[in-house]
Design a protein around this nucleic acid. Structure first.
Lengths: 119, 119
DNA sequence: ACTATTGTTCTATATAATTAGAACACTATA
DNA sequence: TATAGTGTTCTAATTATATAGAACAATAGT
């Protein structure tokens, strides 16, 4: 499930950690109210300093993906589990757009713009 | 169309420049083989050093959004113009996902993953 | 060839982001 | 109330990023 983070590949350790956790959620392997391993253990797993883990977890808190309980632990807090039919639809749209020559960078920008303008 | 870039707002000037150009393309105001203004002029417009413009343009080249011709200029190189029906579909999917509580961060990661796994 | 116009490269500097070490603080349970 | 297990904060150092100034190089037209 979790293994050590790659260093000096351009993408910061804490971002990689954030992504690992988000992917676990997208894959349904982490669900609402599940507790994460303690920060010190995560630090060992990812082979980074404890503060690098905390950096990642604090950012995830900012995105309201997890919550912290001082002295207790970190918990997944996404309010509902992902509806996989939505993922299927997204997949189709993306596939189509990619075939039509829309790059990933353009796609991301487009998504941000759409996101802003959607109620 | 183009105006000066915002400084000290967290997002680097060269990224803002990249996004401005991408948006012009998404909006259909810049099309394949259109020539961009010269780097020195862009530098004046955005009120940054010439090299900051170049930084943006080189990254856009990396994404194959534009191409450089030494001594001549920069040109849009996206192979085809965007099919707006695709944008409409994407919009619907995103709207749905947003309503279901999927955050922008999660959405972006999901899109990257889907992108990787799509032929 | 010369010149104006355009992109490119080299170098330096300032700023911001990233990571880490060590001490602190809260919680639960015995 | 002591202790083990957990998150938090403070500080420092390193590393990477972003921006800029100045000189170089290609192109096109004269």
């Amino acid at each position: 499930m979790l293994n050590s983070v790659e260093k000096h590949i351009g993408v910061p350790a804490y971002i990689q950690i954030m992504n690992v956790i988000k992917k676990e959620i997208l894959l349904g392997r982490l669900k609402s109210d599940d507790q994460l391993p303690p920060v010190r253990e995560l630090a060992k797993i990812f082979k980074v300093n404890m503060n690098t883990v905390i950096r990642a977890l604090e950012k995830l808190q900012g995105e309201e993906v997890i919550r912290a309980e001082h002295g207790v632990g970190y918990f997944i807090t996404v309010t509902q589990n992902i509806d996989f039919s939505i993922i299927g639809e997204l997949k189709k749209s993306i596939e189509k757009a990619k075939k039509d020559g829309l790059s990933l960078g353009m796609m991301k920008l487009l998504i941000e713009e759409v996101w802003k303008n959607v109620k």
